[in-house]
């Protein structure tokens, strides 16, 4: 079993997550896709940790998880705030950036 197989699957999951961010309109699904990308990166970290034989990669994946948790908390709070004022969870409805 070649450890690099995990890397391939990591790349695939990352790509799928990236497409999801672009094509899905529901802000919560978009967030989940971002989580998917972070998880894919984490899988790479863990795999490289195994390949290199030390635990640095795992520590880094651990940090990533914490940061992802922070991001989810703040991001979901933002979604709730936007939903309160606009009655919508669609990222397209928050398109005031251009004006």
């Amino acid at each position: 079993m070649d450890a690099s197989n995990y890397l391939y699957i990591s790349a695939l999951l990352f790509t799928i997550g990236a497409v999801g961010v672009v094509v899905r309109r529901n802000a919560i699904v978009v967030f989940m896709c971002i989580e998917l990308m972070l998880n894919a990166a984490n899988l790479s970290f863990v795999t490289f940790s195994r390949i290199n034989g030390n635990l640095d990669g795992q520590v880094m994946a651990f940090f990533t998880m914490v940061v992802a948790a922070c991001e989810v908390v703040v991001g979901l709070a933002i979604i709730v705030a936007i939903y309160r004022s606009r009655r919508s969870a669609s990222v397209d409805d928050a398109s005031l950036l251009k004006r």
Binding site: V21, V22, V23, R25, V30, V91, D92, A94, S95, L96, L97, K98, R99
Partner: peptide
């Protein structure tokens, strides 16, 4: 045209 305000 690129600056259409849509995050996506």
């Amino acid at each position: 045209g690129l600056q259409n305000g849509f995050v996506r």
